[in-house]
Design a binder for these strands. Structure first.
Lengths: 205, 205
DNA sequence: CGACGTATTGGGGTTATCCACAATAGGGAA
DNA sequence: TTCCCTATTGTGGATAACCCCAATACGTCG
């Protein structure tokens, strides 16, 4: 078992069958994909934290916590890590339920090595793009968090397309004060115009 | 078979088994859901047009065109109609493939009536919300289409947060002309401020 | 040819925005 | 208590945006 590489894309293989762990682990390593293996859902959970990037290959039926249970737990904890289910004895409702809950794929063992690697690569790509999206969203949220209450209030009204005069009126403060808050929040948000602010915030919120 | 109701949400049931058509048709009608039945994919296709709202219940294995083939064809033709696959002899790869291609659900026959109705209701809701989203996007696109070339050019630069002076410079026209185009395009787009325009267009384009 | 739409520009005035300089006041941390 | 952050307001000027009135030029469609 390879040592985890921090912040590097990895495949986390969770399966209680040692033969599977060994053979798939070898498969991924031989493709240049770092792979960590876990013999149980509990083992994976104790090693997991939200910083881990990559994707999960998850057996359905295991001693202790099952694959779907682990999957649900990860989603409850806010993880968006792509999960590919692996199963030797899956049925249609199980597959449908997994995919509808957001699993990335559902593969029956034994499976074609090349296809599995392809699916893993797709999953790694998805994780990378999701993380890029979240991190840009996070930086925006961090900036919003730095605003004072007044600045946030002014921002809302600016985004509503209102004039400083109207904003001053609604907040019961002078126009000059609105101008100051406006300038400060533009500064903190890293924009120079209201249009940039709108583009930065439209969609979220 | 009930006559199609134009622009009303309907269930389109495509199955070559008359007994299924009759029983499910009765089920939906009794729940107040309009249902049209088709004995083949070809029958459905000849009746289908992109105006039809609702969802499709689609058998997998049929004489002639199969369910998945019809599904692919609909997607190719730009339909986003939610499709629920119905099958008596489905396997896991088939279910996985269907869902990953965007099927709404994949249900094995015989199925629980209440669950099926629930799934259909969810699908109808999805269709309605998708249509609402598309129609608002369409109206925006229609407005953009009404703009003259110059107006579109000016709009781009306004959305880039540039001053009229800079826009005039880049387009090699006078500031006054930019102001005119700007006012006209705001008018055509139905907005009063650049912020509203940005919110209307951010995300698309 | 004349009407219409589009693109262009100018004058001149009002309103809004942006900013620099300057100041008062209350709450919390050192 | 002093320092810092936040909120507040004022004066005054530079810049940008918004609008009314008015006009020229080009191409298309009856």
């Amino acid at each position: 078992m390879t040592l985890p590489i921090a912040h590097a894309p990895n495949v986390y293989l969770v399966d209680d069958d040692e033969a599977i762990r060994d053979s798939l682990s070898w498969l991924f390593q031989s493709c240049g994909i770092t792979c960590q293996t876990y013999a149980s859902a509990e083992d994976f959970l104790s090693a997991w934290n939200s910083e881990r990037t990559g994707c999960v290959l998850l057996d359905i039926r295991m001693e202790g916590m099952s694959g779907p249970e682990l999957f649900n737990l990860l989603r409850e904890r806010g993880s968006t890590l792509p999960v590919i289910f692996l199963t030797g004895h899956g049925d249609v409702p199980m597959a449908v339920s997994a995919l509808k809950k957001g699993a990335f794929d559902f593969v029956e063992k034994p499976c074609n090595d090349n296809e599995l690697v392809d699916r893993v690569i797709e999953a790694l790509k998805l994780d990378a793009s999701q993380r890029a999206a979240t991190s840009s969203a996070d930086s925006v949220n961090a900036r919003i968090a730095e605003l004072t209450t007044r600045e946030r209030q002014v921002m809302e009204l600016v985004l509503a397309g209102k004039f400083n005069k109207v904003i001053a009126d609604e907040l019961q403060i002078s126009m000059r004060t609105v101008e100051v808050h406006r300038a400060n929040l533009f500064d903190k948000m890293g924009v120079k115009t209201a249009v940039e602010l709108a583009q930065m915030l439209t969609g979220r919120r």
